[in-house]
Structure formats: structure tokens, C-alpha cells
């Protein structure tokens, strides 16, 4: 492509600075900065109502923004005023009248998978994908779309006869049909059973293999951890943390050691800094130096000739980090 607005490969796929969005007096998005590199799978993680969908819908061109700068594949996704739309619509009617609208050129390069389905129930899978392929100048071959989304066997099934999981795959297939450079996936696995989620994850990995940039929103920690190259945690309209899953987990710090001690436990020395849970009688150690702590604990147990039952050592999970950040952000408010 030789569009003047096309990005060079070094430019990020998405760049957002100081994004704000208010609905009346309610601020849904309060100064968000984002940078998503080309070819990256980026997850926007946050609880319901954090402003994820609002942010993504601004990037997709559905919503206008109240403030800040947004560049998606080099385009400003906000809609031009109605007069401009009518004029460019008329210009598009006349054959040979050069430029398609800015909006149309932008939409030709992105794929959007919304939270809800929006396809005709009376078409079959293949017809639906072909209908959408027809909207784009350089669509992905039908077979590639069917393979990437695992719908090859359902190609002649009417949309209304598909299962929930299959309909969601069709949503993704439709988003993929135009061979977009950038794909938005808004909560792609909400309502899936565990095996359908595994399949969906496989599908997102396939998209990465195709070289797509993917921006996905989710409120599932494990989903972000499995799929994303990088992720940002959004709470109450703000990004509270950003990085690779490993980096964020490392920020979580403490490792947890848990064990229990038979029916008549000996007193545990105070220097081991163990806390006993009143209900299930299990012992918990929180430590930033797990090797050393575990060594002292097992040395003591061997010396006492007792067994550490149900012994477990777990590093902080992304979920712990997430819960901690959400709590901290909540406290800042009050």
C-alpha cells in the first residue's frame, strides 16, 4: 500500500495519549496512555465497568472522545462531521471519483469483534463470511478464515443453528474476513465453557501467526496471561499497571508457602513467621526469599521429625497482582 497515511513498520499500530471520555458528569476514561506495537497481542484487562469497552470503541471509531490524542494505524478513528460524511458519500457514488473516505480506508484495515453477534440468522457460515469479505479490497481467502476459526465443518450451517461457541467463532471469522492489519477482540471468551475457551485461545494464537496485531479486552486474568505479549490493567478509567505478564507477576512480590501439621502440632518457632488460619488450621508463610524460608522451615521439620502435610509453594499470580491493584486504586479514590 502506498497511502500517505500508511504507517511505516516502526510506528506503533495504536498510540493513545491522555485519552478521556465523559458521559455528562461521569468520567468513564480518565487519561489513558497506550502503545501497541505492530504484530503484538495486547490485552486490556480490568473488572467490569473499568472503561475497557469505552476505550476500545473509541479506537474502533464507534465513540467520540472527550479529550486526548488517538492514532490507530496512522488514522484518527473519530467520525468526521455529518457534512463531510455526506459529501464523501456522494463522491463515492461517482465512478472514478478517486478518494474513498478516510473512514472507509480506515475500516478496510481493521477487524472488529464486538461483544454481541450481529449477523443475519438466515445466511449460512460460508455466505456470511463471503458477504463480509466482499466489503474489503483485499480479503483473506475463505478457506483461511474457516481454518483459523475452526468453522470448516460448519460452513453450510445456517447461523441460527450454530451453538453459542460457534457463533462467537463466526464473530471472529467476520472480523477476520477483510484480512485486517489490526483486530479488536472485545471479551472473546465471555460465557465459554473451559474447552471452548482453550479452542478460542488457540485461535488467537493462530491470528498471531498470521502476523496480525491484536487488541483484546478481557476480565479473565488467565486469558491475558496465556495470550498477551503485553497487557495493561485498567481500573476505574485509568491504566494502573502495564507490562509483560511476567513483569507484572514479578511486581506482585511475595511467595506463599502453605502447609499443615497433623492432629497435635508442636509449637512453631516464632522466627519462622508463620501464621495459622483459624478455620482450617493450615499454616501460611509469606516471603520474598522463598529459598531461604523453605530451607529453614524444612530444617525445623526434620529436626522435630514431623511431616509438613499438604506443603505448597506458590508465586504470586497475575490474579493476586490484579486484585491488589484494583483494591489500591479503589482506596485512592476514597
Amino acid at each position: 500500500m502506498t497511502l500517505p497515511t500508511a504507517p511505516d513498520s516502526a510506528a506503533p499500530a495504536i498510540e493513545v495519549r491522555g485519552l478521556r471520555k465523559s458521559y455528562g458528569r461521569v468520567e468513564a476514561v480518565r487519561g489513558v496512555d497506550l502503545r501497541v506495537a505492530v504484530g503484538e497481542v495486547f490485552a486490556l484487562l480490568g473488572p467490569n465497568g473499568a472503561g475497557k469497552t469505552t476505550t476500545v470503541e473509541i479506537l474502533e471509531g464507534y465513540l467520540s472522545r472527550t479529550g486526548g490524542e488517538v492514532s490507530v494505524l496512522g488514522f484518527d478513528p473519530s467520525r468526521p462531521a455529518i457534512k463531510g460524511r455526506i459529501l464523501s458519500g456522494l463522491a463515492g457514488l461517482l465512478p472514478g471519483m478517486g478518494q474513498r473516505s478516510q473512514e472507509r480506508r480506515f475500516k478496510e484495515r481493521i477487524g472488529i469483534v464486538l461483544q454481541s453477534t450481529g449477523v443475519d440468522p438466515y445466511l449460512n457460515v460460508q455466505e456470511t463470511i463471503n458477504l463480509f469479505r466482499g466489503y474489503y479490497p483485499d480479503p483473506l481467502p475463505l478457506e483461511d478464515v474457516l481454518t483459523a476459526t475452526g468453522l470448516a465443518e460448519q460452513r453450510r450451517v445456517r447461523v441460527r443453528k450454530l451453538s453459542g461457541g460457534q457463533q462467537r467463532r463466526l464473530d471472529v471469522a467476520v472480523g477476520l474476513a477483510g484480512n485486517p492489519d489490526l483486530l479488536f477482540l472485545d471479551e472473546p471468551t465471555t460465557g465459554f465453557d473451559p474447552s471452548a475457551r482453550r479452542d478460542a485461545w488457540e485461535m488467537v494464537r493462530n491470528l498471531k501467526q498470521l502476523g496480525k496485531t491484536v487488541l483484546l479486552t478481557t476480565h479473565y486474568m488467565d486469558e491475558a496471561e496465556h495470550l498477551a505479549d503485553r497487557l495493561a490493567i485498567m481500573v476505574r478509567g485509568k491504566i494502573v499497571a502495564e507490562g509483560t505478564p511476567a513483569e507484572l507477576v514479578r511486581r506482585g512480590g511475595a511467595t506463599t508457602i502453605k502447609f499443615s501439621l497433623g492432629t497435635e502440632p508442636p509449637p512453631v518457632p516464632r522466627e519462622l513467621a508463620v501464621e495459622r488460619d483459624g478455620t482450617d488450621g493450615r499454616y501460611t508463610m509469606l516471603t520474598d526469599t522463598p529459598t531461604e524460608s523453605l530451607h529453614r522451615l524444612t530444617a525445623w521439620a526434620v529436626e522435630q521429625d514431623i511431616e509438613l502435610e499438604q506443603l505448597s509453594v506458590s508465586s504470586a499470580s497475575l490474579e493476586d497482582v490484579f486484585v491488589e491493584l484494583a483494591r489500591a486504586a479503589g482506596e485512592d479514590e476514597s
Binding site: 474502533e60 471509531g61 464507534y62 458519500g89 463515492g92 474513498r100 473516505s101 472507509r104 480506508r105 475500516k107 478496510e108 481493521i110 472488529i112 464486538l114 454481541s116 453477534t117 450481529g118 449477523v119 443475519d120 463480509f132 466489503y135 474489503y136 467476520v174 477483510g178
Partner: peptide, 16 residues
Amino acid sequence: ERGVFKRVRGTPLPTW
């Protein structure tokens, strides 16, 4: 209501 219009708006198909 079914989201058909919202979906189409995310594609290059002009509304008209």
C-alpha cells in the same frame, strides 16, 4: 437490536 447495524458500521460498507 441484533447488532447488525453496529457490526456493519465497523466495516468499510457505507451506511447508504
